[in-house]
Simulated assay, not measured.
Amino acid sequence: MSENHDIAIIGGGIMGCAAALRLASGGMAPIVLDRGDLGQGASGVNAGTLSLQIKRVRLMPYALKGHEEWARMGDAVGFRRTGGYTLAFTEREAELLTERQTLKAEAGAPIEFVTNNQVLSAEPNLTRRVLAASYCHEDGYANSSLTGQYYRGRLREASVPYRERCAVTSITRDTQGFVLHTGGPPIKARRILLAAGAWLKPVAAMLGVDLPVNARINTVSVTERMPPLFATVIGHATGLLTMKQKGNGTILIGGGWQGRGTPQEGRGEVIADSLIPNLSLAQFALPKLGQARVLRSWTGFEANVPDFYPLAGELPGVPDAFVLGCVRGGYTIGPYIGRLMGDFILGHSPEMPLFNPGRDFEKDAT
Rank of each mutant, 00 (worst) to 15 (best):
Y141A: 02
I333T: 07
Y162D: 12
A231P: 02
G334K: 09
A107V: 10
A204W: 13
C326A: 15
R35Q: 15
L120T: 00
T299D: 07
D75N: 02
A321I: 02
A24W: 04
I54H: 12
S43A: 13
P61M: 11
E95H: 14
S2H: 09
G66C: 10
N4A: 12
G16Y: 11
L50I: 04
G342M: 04
P319F: 00
P161L: 14
K188H: 14
E164S: 13
I234N: 00
H5C: 02
K65L: 10
R58S: 07
A321K: 01
E157I: 04
G16W: 12
L87K: 00
D307M: 14
I217P: 06
Y309W: 10
G330Q: 05
E93I: 05
T82N: 09
G268C: 15
L97Q: 01
T147W: 14
G329H: 13
E99T: 07
G27N: 02
G26Y: 00
C17Y: 11
E138W: 15
A204L: 05
L103W: 11
I54P: 06
Y162N: 13
C166Y: 08
T299K: 06
S159H: 14
R267A: 14
W70G: 11
P319R: 01
N46I: 03
C166E: 06
G13C: 05
R293K: 04
L180C: 05
E157W: 08
R225C: 07
M15V: 08
M352Q: 11
N304A: 12
G26W: 01
L59D: 09
M15W: 11
G313N: 02
G27W: 01
D364M: 13
H5F: 15
L200E: 05
I345E: 00
V45W: 15
S144M: 14
Y135L: 05
E91Y: 06
T90A: 12
P306D: 15
A42K: 10
L340N: 06
G36I: 08
F178G: 00
G78S: 15
I217K: 06
A18S: 12
G26C: 01
N214F: 15
R216C: 07
F113S: 05
G183K: 13
R56E: 15
P110T: 03
L87M: 08
Q176P: 02
P161F: 11
Y336E: 09
L23F: 06
R152A: 11
C136V: 09
L311Y: 14
V179G: 01
T172G: 07
D139G: 07
V130Y: 02
M206Y: 11
V220E: 03
P227T: 00
I192N: 00
L180V: 03
P353L: 03
R129V: 08
G261F: 11
Q245T: 00
N278S: 13
G36F: 13
V160K: 04
H181T: 04
I9T: 03
Q291Y: 09
R163V: 03
A285I: 04
G255L: 03
Q264V: 14
G36S: 04
I253K: 00
A158T: 03
R293A: 05
A282D: 01
S43V: 08
R100A: 09
F308V: 05
A20S: 04
D273E: 15
R81A: 07
A231K: 10
T262V: 08
G208D: 07
L50K: 02
T299L: 06
P335Y: 04
Y309P: 09
L315V: 06
A231E: 10
